[in-house]
Amino acid sequence: MDSEKHDIVVTVNGMRYLRQAEARMLLSDFIRHELLLAGTHVGCEHGVCGACTILFDGHPVRACLMLAPQANGHEITTVEGLAPSPDQLHPLQQAMHDKHGLQCGYCTPGILMTMTAFLAEHPVPDEAQVREALSGNLCRCTGYQHIVDAVLEAAEKMRDVK
């Protein structure tokens, strides 16, 4: 069977990478183990848990449901690219800290990627919208309440800035 490697040129968090990968390599594995950006987590590898959510050309997708060669020529943002600087967190990261929106933190990167995109599109969300947007990311620790609080608070803070 063919295990030829494909050239992949991909921009991740603003940095361009050139790597080779086998066709079948999942994009989640490529990001974690080839690009060594291990902040993107893998929870189920069948598209249910949402831990591996990344922004692909600006939109949240499951990295476990794409193959690495599909990223060729595209732009990706991962959790490592979210904070504006090493000393400053993204408002949602900050709100997750302030509201205790994470416990083990394993699902957190996926939630951050999903919900930052959501907030960009819904600057004035209500709790029901937040819960619906969050429903594709499973968290086993928090019972979601503090995450919902954090997203609502981040929305408010981001509006204040604007």
Binding site: M1, H6, E22, A23, R24
Partner: peptide, 11 residues
């Protein structure tokens, strides 16, 4: 849970 070997072509 990794895919079996395959050949990939982008049309």
């Amino acid at each position: 849970m990794k895919p079996a070997p395959l050949k990939y072509m982008a049309a």
